[in-house]
């Protein structure tokens, strides 16, 4: 045991010869360079792979994507506490940052639980607990993206996306417009309002089209244009100021329409222009060329 009692100095503690110092530096540089390349590769892959597919929707309360990717530790606690198995963790090859939670509305949409258990479960703040009212969630924005196949746009009364919307009549309304094809029916067009849409995706799930949905939840960045800040909306300015900012406009009378409100040019039978003191009989506005069938039906 005598040999063990003596402390032997290790090589590193002794003065290092210049040659071996040079070699040490060279080795260290090689090792550091290799490690740096590995990390750089990971970083570049991460940057390149951080673009989220348009159909992958983050859970409610998710931070903006950049911050989300810095905060989410990929533990899956939000997935576990989702009662409807809406959320899933991305697997390698899904196109979503590996291990981060997302859902696809056409598969299983968000049921908008009032207690938002996924947000409560998140330990890291990737899902922001400032979100307490699920109606304020902004997971994405529904867009009626295919107006050629949407049944309501074809003049039918499908309305399913409107009916299933948890924020019905606010996030989706049916806007009634004239059907120029039949020329006598209305079309009720599902119209999304970004102020109220939470991006839950129930409309996309419910769309009756086989395969792809005509209405889709997209990331807000993709779904919305930027506001034209330089363009002052006259009607909003007027309402805010209580009066028109450019003063009252001169209203010139329109001959033959003197009794009507300014700007109202609708002409009903018997109201046509008078020629030489006599009313032009059966006056009707001209029909658009080639537009509409006239079956002769009268109400």
């Amino acid at each position: 045991m005598a040999m063990n009692d003596k402390v032997q100095s290790s090589g590193r503690a002794e003065p290092v010869a210049p040659a071996s110092r040079r070699r040490f530096l060279k080795d260290a540089a090689g090792v550091a360079g290799g490690a740096g390349l590995l990390a750089l590769g990971a970083g570049m892959y991460a940057k390149q792979a951080s673009a989220l597919p348009a159909t992958a929707i983050r859970p409610p309360g998710a931070l903006p994507e950049d911050d989300f990717l810095a905060a989410c530790v990929r533990c899956g606690l939000c997935v576990r506490d989702c009662p409807y198995k809406t959320l899933k963790l991305a697997e390698l090859g899904d196109g979503v940052a590996t291990g981060t939670p997302y859902f696809e509305a056409r598969d299983i949409p968000c049921e908008m639980c009032e207690d938002i258990p996924c947000v409560v479960a998140c330990p890291t703040g990737a899902l922001d607990r400032a979100l307490v009212d699920i109606a304020k969630a902004k997971m994405g924005l529904a867009v009626l993206i295919d107006q050629e196949n949407c049944l309501n746009f074809l003049g039918l009364r499908c309305d399913v996306c409107y009916r299933v919307c948890p924020v019905i009549d606010q996030a989706i309304t049916l806007e009634r417009i004239h059907n120029p094809r039949s020329d006598r029916h209305a079309m009720l067009l599902p119209t999304v309002h970004s102020e109220y849409c939470t991006g839950c995706g129930k409309c996309e799930k419910a769309c009756v089209l086989p395969g792809e949905s005509a209405i889709k939840v997209l990331p807000i960045k993709l779904a919305q244009g930027s506001k034209a800040e330089h363009y002052l909306r006259g009607w909003e300015e007027k309402e805010a100021a209580g009066k028109s900012l450019i003063g009252d406009q001169v209203e010139l009378p329109v001959r033959g329409l003197e009794g009507k409100a300014y700007g109202d040019t609708r002409v009903e039978p018997g109201q046509g222009p008078v020629q030489g003191g006599t009313q032009v009989p059966d006056y009707a506005p001209a029909k658009p060329a080639g537009g509409g069938l006239d079956s002769g039906w009268k109400p």
Partner: peptide, 29 residues
């Protein structure tokens, strides 16, 4: 790299967390 990219860049490829997560949540590739 985490500081430079502002994201958990290593977690894209970290085999340690990926293996455990894969066993529990599904592997993919």
């Amino acid at each position: 790299i985490a500081a430079a990219t502002g994201s958990l860049a290593w977690e894209w490829v970290n085999p340690v967390s990926m293996f455990h997560r894969g066993l529990i949540f599904g592997f993919g590739l």
